Simulated scan of single mutants.
Amino acid sequence: MAVSFKVNRPITIDQFTRLLESSTLGERRPIHDRECMEGMISNSNLIVSAWDGALLVGIARSVTDFHYACYLSDLAVHKSYQKSGIGKRLQSLTQEQLGPLCKLILIAAPAANSYYGQIGYTHNDRCWVLEPGVTIGN
């Protein structure tokens, strides 16, 4: 397995969707909504990807200002490539693209919740989520 890593290499919607389907992340993403998937890729301003030849085997998809905050919205590794260090490398390469004061922020998938503390993240219980269709009240 000779995996190469790329920063902001173009990724097709089909490649992205297939990767999410082949990882546990596909269960929590709108993989059947092509327009949404297109928006997710085209509006991300930092994408670090892992490739085995022409096969996309990992992705760290982020939205960031590069100076203060980077929201790592998708971290996915193909099931056949998990536990080989690809996820850690994707996060490290993402971090390398950011300024020295920029924080990497993510919402952990339930099965991965304990993983992040083991690799250096600190837990923050102050996150709030406003679901689609919910109107902000008084």
Rank of each mutant, 00 (worst) to 15 (best):
N113E: 14
V134Y: 09
G87T: 00
Q82T: 11
S114G: 11
L106F: 03
H123R: 13
C70G: 06
E96H: 13
T122I: 12
Q97C: 06
I119C: 04
S80P: 00
I119R: 01
D74I: 07
L72A: 04
P100Q: 13
H123L: 14
S84C: 11
A111E: 15
V134P: 05
Q118I: 10
G133E: 05
C127R: 09
C127K: 09
W128Q: 13
L90W: 03
P132M: 05
D125I: 08
L101G: 15
Q118R: 14
P110E: 08
A109C: 08
A112H: 07
Y116W: 06
G120V: 00
G99N: 08
K103D: 12
G87P: 01
T122E: 14
Y121H: 03
Y116P: 05
I119T: 08
C127A: 14
C70D: 11
K83G: 02
G99M: 02
V134R: 11
Y116E: 05
Y121D: 01
H123W: 11
T94W: 05
L98D: 04
E131N: 13
K103I: 02
S92F: 10
C70K: 07
A76H: 01
L93K: 03
L93V: 01
L106D: 02
S80T: 12
G120F: 01
A111P: 09
K88F: 05
S80G: 09
G87M: 00
T122S: 13
I86N: 00
Q95D: 04
K103W: 11
L90M: 07
K83V: 08
V77S: 02
Y81S: 01
G85Y: 09
Y116I: 09
A69Q: 15
T94A: 08
L101Y: 15
R89N: 07
L101W: 14
G99L: 03
Q118A: 15
H123E: 12
L104N: 03
L72I: 03
E131M: 11
L75C: 00
R126K: 14
H123K: 13
Q97E: 07
A111L: 14
V77N: 01
S73T: 07
A76V: 03
V77H: 01
A111N: 12
S80D: 15
L106C: 06
V129F: 13
P132Q: 06
Q95P: 01
Y81G: 00
I105C: 04
K83P: 00
Q82G: 05
Q95R: 15
K83D: 09
Q91C: 10
C102L: 02
W128M: 15
Y68G: 05
L98K: 08
G117K: 06
Y81T: 01
G85F: 11
Y81M: 06
C102Q: 06
Y121Q: 02
